[in-house]
Design a protein around this nucleic acid. Structure first.
Lengths: 223, 223
DNA sequence: CGACAGATTGATCCGTCTCAAGCGTGGTGG
DNA sequence: CCACCACGCTTGAGACGGATCAATCTGTCG
C-alpha cells in the first residue's frame, strides 16, 4: 500500500523539522499529534534508568506514528535530521467520521507494527548476537526510504542505536560484526557504511523461519 | 474504558469455544475473523523452529485481538478452556462506516498493545530473571479477568508458558522463583498457585521505572 | 590540525542455558 | 482402589555467550 500525498487531506496539517537527537515526544506526554515521516529517520524507544534503553522501531519515509489516543507509552526521537508531517489526532478522528478509510488505514498500520514488534521480541529473546545482526541488516536491505546503491548501505543510526535495538552491548555488536566480516557476510565501509555480499542480499527473500528462531546458533548459513 | 456488551452490536457475531492448547489461528493464515475473549485465556505467540517459542501477550476477558487486515503475523492459541466472541472483520469495518467509534476503539486497542509489547521487549532485553518475574507477577495482580482472592493468585498458564513469555528457560524460571520465595516476595502454593506478600502487592502501584530497567539487578527491592 | 565522541579491542566475570537426573502429581486402566 | 505411567516441574553440575571494565583507536567535525 502506498501512502498518498493527500492522505488525511481533509484534515489540517503542517510539517516540522527535527534535528538529530531531538525528542519528538516522551513517555507520559499527552497524545495530541500524530505524525508521518517525510524524510529522515525516527526511533521509537523505551528509556530505562541508568542509560538502559530499548529501541523498538526505526521509522522511515511514509511511516505513521503517534496516533495513540492515550498518553504516550513510548518516546520518539529523531535519529537524523528529520522532516515530519503533523496532524492533530482529534481532527483526524473527526475526519474519520466522514471517511472511515482513514481510520482503517490507522488500524492497519497499528496492527502491522504489532506484528513487527512481536517478531522483534522473538528475535531478541532467541537469536544469537550474530543472527540478530543478520536479521537486522537483511531487514534494512528490503527497507524503503534508505539510501543504498548496488550493495552499499549507509546506516542513518549509530552503532549504539543498533545495539540498543538488538538488545546487545556496543562491544558485543562490534565483535559480532567482526565475525560476520570474516565470514564474508558483510563488509564494513566507513563508520556507518556497509557492503552486503551477494549471499547476504539473498537473505531478504529467505524466510525469517529459515534464518531461524533457534536457541542455538546452528541456523547460521555460514556454518 | 469498559467494553459494552453490545459493542459492534450492529455486526453479526457468535461465540466459539476452544479447549486448552487449541489453535485459534496460525501465522500466515488469512485474517477473516476478529475476536473478543469472553472467558478463559488466549496467548499470542511467535513459533520458531525447534520448539523455540515466544509468547507475546496473554489475553483475558474483554481483550480484543485478530483485527488485522492482512495475513496473521502471529498465532493465537487457547491457554485454557476459552470462550471467544467472533466477528467477520469485513463486517466490522463496514459497520465502522456508520459508527466510526468502533474503528477508533480498535485503533486504541492496537496502540495500547504496541505500548505493552514495547515494554515487554524492553524488560526481556534488560531485566534479570528475577526482576522479569517480579514484573510479570505484579502485572497479573492488577489484571482483570483472573481469579484471585486476597493475595492468592491462580495462574491459568503453565510454567513453560511463563518461561516462554519472559524469554527464560523453564529451569531458570524455577530457580529464580526459589530466590523470590526465600526473599519473601512470593510463595508457591500448588503447581500454579501463588501467594503474593504484602510488599509485592505494593509493586503494582510502584512505577515500572522504579522496578527498573537496569542492566544489573540493583533495582531489586529485596536487596 | 587537533579534539572529542564513537567505535574497537582485550581480559575477565557472571548469569543464564544446556544436558541430565530426580521428583511430584494427576490421570488412566486394570 | 491402587498400580502404573506420563508429563511438568524441580534440582544439580557444567559450559558458554554476552556483559562489564578499561584502554586504545578512529574518523568526523570544529
Amino acid at each position: 500500500m502506498t501512502l498518498e500525498e493527500d492522505m488525511f487531506g481533509g484534515a489540517p496539517n503542517w510539517v516540522v523539522r527535527h534535528s538529530a537527537g531531538q525528542v519528538v515526544f516522551d513517555e507520559g506526554d499527552p497524545a495530541t499529534m500524530m505524525y508521518r515521516v517525510e524524510s529522515g529517520c525516527i526511533r521509537l524507544q523505551v528509556n530505562g534508568t541508568e542509560g538502559a534503553r530499548q529501541i523498538i522501531s526505526f521509522l522511515f519515509k511514509g511511516d505513521l506514528f503517534g496516533y495513540g489516543v492515550e498518553d504516550r507509552k513510548i518516546s520518539a526521537e529523531a535519529v537524523t535530521e528529520t522532516v515530519l508531517r503533523c496532524w492533530k489526532i482529534s481532527s483526524v478522528l473527526t475526519l474519520g467520521t466522514r471517511t472511515p478509510e482513514v481510520l482503517i488505514s490507522l488500524i492497519k498500520a497499528a496492527d502491522h507494527r504489532v506484528g513487527e514488534i512481536a517478531h522483534h521480541l522473538a528475535n531478541v529473546a532467541h537469536l544469537s548476537a550474530t543472527d540478530r545482526i543478520r536479521w537486522f541488516l537483511s531487514g534494512l536491505v528490503s527497507c524503503h526510504g534508505l539510501p543504498k546503491s548496488n550493495g552499499r548501505l549507509d546506516l542513518p543510526m549509530s552503532k549504539r542505536d543498533v545495539a540498543d535495538y538488538l538488545g546487545l552491548s556496543a562491544e558485543t555488536l562490534s565483535r559480532a560484526l567482526n565475525d560476520l566480516e570474516t565470514d564474508g557476510f558483510v563488509q564494513r565501509d566507513g563508520k556507518r557504511g556497509f557492503r552486503l555480499q551477494g549471499q547476504s542480499l539473498e537473505l531478504k527473500v529467505r524466510s525469517e523461519a529459515e534464518l531461524g528462531l533457534r536457541r542455538d546458533g546452528s541456523a547460521s548459513p555460514s556454518k
